[in-house]
Computed example of a mutant assay.
Amino acid sequence: MYQLNLPVFDYKLKKADGKVWIFDVIRKKYVVITPEEWVRQHFIHYLITHFKYPRSLVKVEGGLIYNKLQKRSDILVFDREGNPWMIVECKAPTLLLSENTLRQAAVYNATLKAKYLTVTNGLMYVCSATDWAQGTTVVLEELPIYEEGI
């Protein structure tokens, strides 16, 4: 797998059906490892371990409807009232984070209206905060620590 710019964690791998699987602590099952899944698992552990995001408020591959189309968010973090708080879109490390990539994620967020939107390829990330009442968005220098961002 790819070397990422995220802290290493104690992951569990297995081989079955000619594929390599990684254990997802949120879904509590093994999933086929792809470059995007590798990034997603590292980023989940980064959020939980370094930024104190409660594991119980993190959802992986949550469904959403946009323009009558069924879409899936990679990581969705909820606030303590159960509202979308942060959407994280994970891309393969070989994919550059472009304006189009960020725009696509922002379109998804137009449905959920999470305060924070993050896009990562495991090598870098871009996180923005939106004030939906004011209609403004700012790019943040760092990810918010969960309790501070509530």
Rank of each mutant, 00 (worst) to 15 (best):
R55E: 15
Y30I: 01
E36V: 10
D10A: 03
L69T: 08
V58A: 13
Y108V: 12
R72I: 04
I75W: 04
V31M: 14
Y146W: 15
I26K: 06
E147S: 14
T136W: 00
I26P: 10
N67W: 03
I33D: 04
P7I: 05
C90M: 04
W132K: 05
V39P: 08
L47W: 07
L143I: 13
R103P: 00
Y116I: 07
L69V: 06
A114V: 04
T130K: 09
E61F: 08
V25F: 03
A133L: 10
K14Y: 12
D131C: 09
L102S: 01
I150E: 15
L102Y: 07
E142N: 15
V39A: 06
R103V: 02
L96N: 06
V77F: 01
E141Q: 12
T34Q: 07
T130H: 03
E89S: 05
W21Y: 15
T34A: 05
R27S: 10
K15L: 15
Q134W: 02
H50S: 12
V8P: 09
K15N: 14
F23I: 12
Y66I: 13
I150D: 09
M1D: 01
F43Y: 14
D131F: 04
N100E: 15
T130Q: 04
L102H: 03
S98P: 01
F78R: 02
Q70H: 14
I150P: 00
K19C: 12
T34C: 03
T49S: 12
E61C: 11
H45Q: 15
M86F: 02
K52E: 10
G18C: 06
V32C: 09
P144I: 01
E37H: 11
T136H: 02
V139W: 10
K19M: 08
N121D: 02
Y146N: 13
E36I: 03
Y146H: 10
Q70S: 14
R80Q: 13
